[in-house]
């Protein structure tokens, strides 16, 4: 056989070319496709996550509502009946001795804050 062709004259050269930046983009294309196929293959995974979060939120809300009713049942209700504040103060004042009444009157007469309040009311 005529053995004139020498492989070294070509080496590993090929007549093929690729677009500019081809090898930079093919990696990203593959990674995106792999991620997309992974997501498509496991759609239940995310749904499961959402359901878990929803159940946890529901349980937390239920626990808060239950706690509210328990606290309401355990702690006695505060007396919220309206009272006539002025009448009760007057009654208490009348029960004081004359000396105490004089002392209080003298004290409040000198109080600048009460004085300002009275001036405002007069205006």
């Amino acid at each position: 056989m005529d053995n004139t062709f020498d492989f070294n004259s070509v080496g590993k050269r090929m007549p093929y070319t690729v677009p500019d930046g081809f090898f930079d983009t093919i990696e990203e294309n593959v990674m995106q496709e792999v991620a997309a196929k992974k997501e498509k293959a496991n759609p239940g995974k995310n749904r499961k996550k959402v359901v878990t979060i929803a159940i946890r939120s529901l349980l937390a809300t239920a626990a808060a509502v239950a706690l509210f009713f328990v606290v309401r049942a355990v702690i006695p209700k505060a007396d919220t009946t309206p009272v006539d504040d002025f009448a009760s103060v007057e009654l208490a004042f009348n029960n004081l001795s004359n000396d105490d009444q004089d002392f209080l009157l003298a004290l409040y007469e000198e109080d600048e804050y009460i004085e300002e309040l009275q001036q405002d009311q007069e205006l």
Partner: peptide, 14 residues
């Protein structure tokens, strides 16, 4: 489209 016809020997080898 991505073929280099300037290298005749490499093309012939392929």
């Amino acid at each position: 489209e991505y073929y280099d016809d300037g290298d005749a020997l490499a093309a012939r080898l392929q």
